[in-house]
């Protein structure tokens, strides 16, 4: 064996251990990192897609893209009557509505009578509610579950996405994001 070959192989001998070390560091990091199983929307900063949804409840009109282009920031809440966390965030939604925030709802895969019952039980903070039976708007804005809440600015551009239910401690954050979108 030539000297060069010997040198090469002596380095190669340590290669498996080095690779194992790299693997070890990677999975340690993987174990300690905060578990993040959510898929965030990649559509933040982009304008809402074109849509026009029928009304999901009798006393609220349907929802279309134009309803967001009024110059004032609003919330778009993706919810469903069959979703338990949606009922949990209802008091916070009411609080936001009472503070003058305009909230538009998109009911995912829902029946009108169920939406009506849900609103009767949990309160109705929505100005308009669109009925999204095939998750068209949900997919269109990169939402992957219910509930999710989006901050939309006055030009109809998505500014912020909140995944999961809005808890009492999240209300201030949402208000701040709305204020930022209004600037």
């Amino acid at each position: 064996m030539s000297e060069a070959t010997a040198k090469r192989s002596s380095l190669a001998i340590w290669l498996p251990l080095a690779l194992f070390g790299a693997f070890f560091v990677l999975v340690i990091w993987g174990l300690v990192r905060p578990a993040d199983r959510e898929v965030a929307s990649a559509f933040i900063g982009k304008p809402l897609p074109q849509f026009a949804l029928e009304a999901a409840a009798q006393d609220r009109p349907g929802l279309s893209t134009a309803d967001f282009k009024t110059g004032k920031p609003k919330l778009l809440n993706v919810f469903a009557s069959w979703c338990v966390p949606c009922a949990i965030e209802a008091p916070q939604m009411d609080a936001l509505a009472k503070r003058g925030v305009e909230i538009h709802g998109v009911a995912i895969r829902d029946r009108s009578e169920d939406v009506a019952r849900f609103l009767a039980t949990n309160g109705n903070p929505f100005t308009r509610i669109g009925k999204d039976d095939v998750s068209e708007v949900q997919v269109g804005i990169g939402s992957s579950g219910v509930p999710e809440t989006f901050v939309i600015d006055g030009k109809g551009v998505i500014r912020y996405q909140h995944i999961g239910e809005i808890r009492p401690e999240d209300v201030d954050l949402i208000l701040r994001k709305l204020a930022e979108a209004g600037q």
């Binding site: 469903a80 069959w82 979703c83 338990v84 829902d110 029946r111 039976d133 095939v134 998750s135 219910v146």
Partner: peptide
């Protein structure tokens, strides 16, 4: 776990 919608699947 708790979320089961009753709507028929999309066409």
């Amino acid at each position: 776990a708790t979320a089961q919608d009753l709507l028929p699947p999309a066409p």
